[in-house]
Design a binder for these strands. Structure first.
Lengths: 135, 135
DNA sequence: TCGACTTGCGGGTATATGCCCGCAATGACC
DNA sequence: GGTCATTGCGGGCATATACCCGCAAGTCGA
């Protein structure tokens, strides 16, 4: 008999998919989905040009994944790609479209964030952060 | 000033990716990754043939995603695809390869599960389940 | 200064994921 | 018994994600 032991990983993946759907829907009016919005925020927070590898570290994404995502965001006019002093590096910075998406998305993101926080209840939000940080 | 408010969604996605990497590595010797292992378990648990739509509901996946994943698992010999009474339905059941992968993966999965549980600490595991269920 | 690592990327390969459209099979309701 | 809405799929389209290989640029020690 296989007892019904839930797999942490499967549960996390489902939660991530559901949360993504919630944020994607909220951000839709801004013409951007969470994955890209999140990357734009990392770039914004950096406050300077960042290389693809740095962005990967910031977002905990594989470098090659960042490279592909960047290509899409570039095509959409969210970012511009240049090269740094180190000529191996490809650096990215926000473009007008990216700033606009961030501005339009900010309040929508906050709404989604609040909705999720409400579902988690008092203290739950903080607990979740602490638990996920432990991973 | 943009304060450093962590996005629940981004955090969840990172946690899911990291957990997936842990389980994938653990399951590697069994020749299967977590996403497919998880689906095989759903089919096993069902104890009967399930349609693609049912599997989608069980795994909280979009039906079209299930369709594609099933195609890959079929090619790998993990499952067999047939059709039910309702001739619209495509039903799946475990094949020999799937049973073997489940058997070989079971102890490896338990090890990964234990490792994650250890990181979450006493009670943390249960809390996480409760929180994710709230989503 | 020259070879040996190290680092940063692009591209190939394979999955995973969701939305939408259209088709076929069912079901429900006159 | 005919519509007509519902349900189940496949396939097209777009992203997201990771691993590996190979090339180019930078670093460092002898």
């Amino acid at each position: 008999m296989t007892s019904a032991v839930p797999c942490y990983c499967a549960t996390l993946r489902i939660a991530a998919r559901k949360a993504t759907a919630v944020y994607d829907e909220a951000l839709a009016p801004a013409g951007i989905a969470l994955a890209q919005f999140s990357l734009l925020r990392k770039i914004e927070r950096a406050g300077r040009e960042v290389s693809l590898s740095e962005l990967g570290r910031l977002a905990a994404l594989d470098r090659s994944t960042v490279g592909r995502n960047v290509k899409v965001m570039r095509r959409k006019g969210f970012i511009e790609v240049g090269s740094g002093d180190d000529r191996r590096e490809a650096t990215v910075r926000l473009a007008e479209g990216g700033r606009a998406a961030l501005a339009a998305g900010a309040p929508l993101w906050r709404a989604a964030q609040a909705r999720v926080e409400a579902k988690l209840g008092e203290g739950g939000a903080g607990q979740l952060r602490a638990l996920l940080a432990a991973l």
